[in-house]
């Protein structure tokens, strides 16, 4: 379970998150939505323990993330940040192997190598395993990073706008894979993802957390919380939910 209790975050004296209290259990995809500057990325980083709250506490499976040591945090949540700028000359296998670092601290064992093989299998990366990252397309690269985060073997995967640089085909591919990961099975993970594309949120999210100006607007199951009125208020523009071919689609009105 992720529990935020009266969490506020300030940067250089300016409030970024304001008194956020929120909790949700494992399972499914939780989408963080809201306009630019709402504090979505900061919330994700606070959950991962990389941003210390000015006040309040963040607990993941009971662990106080602000006080935990980095390897301990990394065994509870895997975070894929927005601007991954890895310049080292790594192959895909090397990168995925780094996902195991909090388990082996640079000395991989058989269990770690097995986990890397599983990650390459699950994300269909075997044909690319020995390719260097700088030789991959944007979609392949993002898939490799998600595989690295999965290999961390944490109950939670936190992803900060992983679709921002992807075309619709690759974005859909990533979301289909994440959706598959949340289904029951040995590879199951709970996903918390920052999304700007409301259509993707409407299609894939099980749960919605909406933020505006650093405050929590609403949170709950997507079918209840995500309404045209809520989205219109959240983004300050007319939006409606239409049902097309059996799926919810967000349209401007």
């Amino acid at each position: 379970m992720i529990e935020l209790n009266a969490v506020s975050v300030e940067k250089s004296g300016a409030p970024i998150l304001n008194d956020i209290s929120l909790s949700f259990g494992q399972g499914g995809i939780t989408a963080l939505i809201g306009p630019n500057g709402a504090g979505k990325s900061t919330l994700l980083h606070a959950i991962a323990g990389l941003v210390a709250p000015t006040c309040g506490t963040v607990r993941v499976e009971g662990l106080d993330m602000a006080r935990a040591r980095p390897p301990e945090r990394a065994r509870h949540v895997a975070l894929l940040a927005q601007d991954e700028r890895v310049t080292a000359r790594l192959t895909v296998r090397d990168l995925v192997g780094f996902g195991r670092w909090s388990h082996h601290h640079g000395r991989p064992r058989d269990a770690d190598r097995r986990m890397v093989r599983d990650a390459l299998d699950i994300f269909d990366l075997n044909p690319l395993a020995e390719r260097r990252l700088d030789a991959l397309s944007g979609g392949q690269r993002q898939r490799a990073f998600v595989a690295m985060a999965w290999a961390q073997e944490t109950p939670w995967l936190l992803l900060d706008e992983p679709l921002s640089a992807l075309d619709p085909r690759h974005a859909r591919d990533i979301m289909d894979r994440l959706h598959a990961l949340t289904r029951p099975g040995p590879a199951q993970r709970s996903v918390v993802i920052v999304l700007h594309d409301l259509g993707v949120a409407a299609r894939y999210a099980d749960r919605i957390v909406a933020l505006k100006d650093g405050r929590l607007v609403t949170s709950g199951p997507r079918v209840l919380a995500m309404t045209g009125g809520m989205l219109s208020d959240l983004f300050g523009t007319g939006l409606a939910l239409e049902r097309i071919k059996g799926r919810d689609v967000v349209v401007p009105v």
């Binding site: 990389l50 980095p70 065994r75 700028r85 080292a88 780094f98 909090s102 690295m148």
Partner: peptide, 15 residues
Amino acid sequence: LAALGRVTAMPLGLD
């Protein structure tokens, strides 16, 4: 691990 950059290395468990 540090060579991956702060934003990537910290969530992987590096101090």
